[in-house]
């Protein structure tokens, strides 16, 4: 399997990349880790005329808390995230997901920005971003924009990014006392895309009442999906087993899976129900620690 010919351009700065993209037009594609795009090119499902390599741009690989935000540079690899002390200690949901994403060698190259910007509902990070209510920072010909995650995913492999926009940073509200998250996916074997996955983030106040909650679903809809009805049910409530049971049921009803090699629609709905409940419990446990 060999990709079709293309022109390669290495960008050393975000500005240069955007300029290149603007000049080359829609036949140009950005490549960061390349682990989503290059396989598609090798299978010749994608045949871009130009590849703009953004992986060498300096300064886009970092993980830091800044003000009330956790900020992750878009070129941060999944491995860097996996071994990052801050994420390990304060954002265990990231470890849950990364451990289940592809394999260690792919994670050495694959970036968080690429995982999100690809716009694939089968990728794991979109569900986390939905659950944690991330903002996506992008730079483009018109300058910098900050896109709330709920406005980011538009369709099958389609996002709010214009062709020349570069996703530069992910901003996530900082972990605070009483918050916790968890992610799990059922996969056919390790490293597989999710049969179904669920990310949950909860924030409890001192009396244990749920102030904020986010639930994102992986690979059970064409577009990465937020479980709005489930979140509404929990917000402002003390989360009980009965409520968790109801949210699991809602998740199984509201998700939009299709039957495929990973299983029937009914099976996937059932899996979503189970994982939603389990991740709610796990997130609550972490929030209460």
């Amino acid at each position: 399997m060999i990709p079709a010919n293309f022109n390669y351009h290495k960008a050393t700065s975000v500005k240069e990349a955007i300029a290149l993209s603007s000049e080359l037009g829609e036949e140009a594609k950005y490549m960061s880790g390349g682990h989503s795009l290059l396989p598609m090119m090798k299978l010749r499902f994608a045949t871009p005329e130009h590849i703009i390599d953004i992986s060498k741009i300096e300064g886009l690989s970092y993980i830091k808390e800044d003000g009330d935000m956790l900020k992750i540079g878009a070129l941060t690899t999944q491995t860097e995230m996996e071994h990052n002390t801050l994420l390990k200690e304060s954002y265990p949901i990231m470890g849950d997901a990364i451990w289940l994403t592809a394999d260690p060698s792919v994670r050495n190259v694959g970036t968080i920005g690429g995982n999100i910007a690809h716009g694939d509902a089968a990728n794991d990070q979109p569900a986390l971003m939905l659950a944690m209510r991330a903002n996506i920072v992008a730079e483009g010909a018109d300058g910098t924009k900050t896109i709330p995650i709920d406005e980011f995913f538009h369709g099958f492999y389609m996002t709010a990014l214009e062709p020349s926009d570069i996703l530069t940073e992910i901003q996530i509200p900082k972990a605070k006392k009483g918050s916790g998250g968890a992610y799990h996916k059922v996969e056919r074997k390790v490293g597989d895309y999710a049969t179904a996955g669920v990310a949950v983030h909860v924030e409890l106040d001192d009396s244990g009442v749920c102030q904020q909650v986010g639930i994102g679903l992986t690979n059970v809809s064409a577009v990465p999906m937020r479980l709005e009805r489930g979140e509404e049910l929990l917000r402002g409530q003390e989360i009980t087993d009965e409520l968790i049971e109801q949210v699991g049921q809602i998740a199984s009803e509201d998700c939009e899976p299709e039957s495929d090699l990973r299983g029937s629609e009914a099976y996937k709905r059932s899996v979503v129900n189970t994982i939603t409940k389990r991740m709610l419990n796990k997130a609550l446990e972490r929030a209460r620690q």
């Binding site: 390669y8 390349g34 682990h35 060698s105 050495n108």
Partner: peptide, 22 residues
């Protein structure tokens, strides 16, 4: 398709699948 790892090398000290790297 970067599933089997037979092409794994070390690139700047990290394991990388050379079949999926330009």
């Amino acid at each position: 398709t970067s599933n089997c790892g037979a092409c794994t090398i070390l690139l700047d000290g990290k394991s990388v699948k050379a079949c999926t790297y330009l």
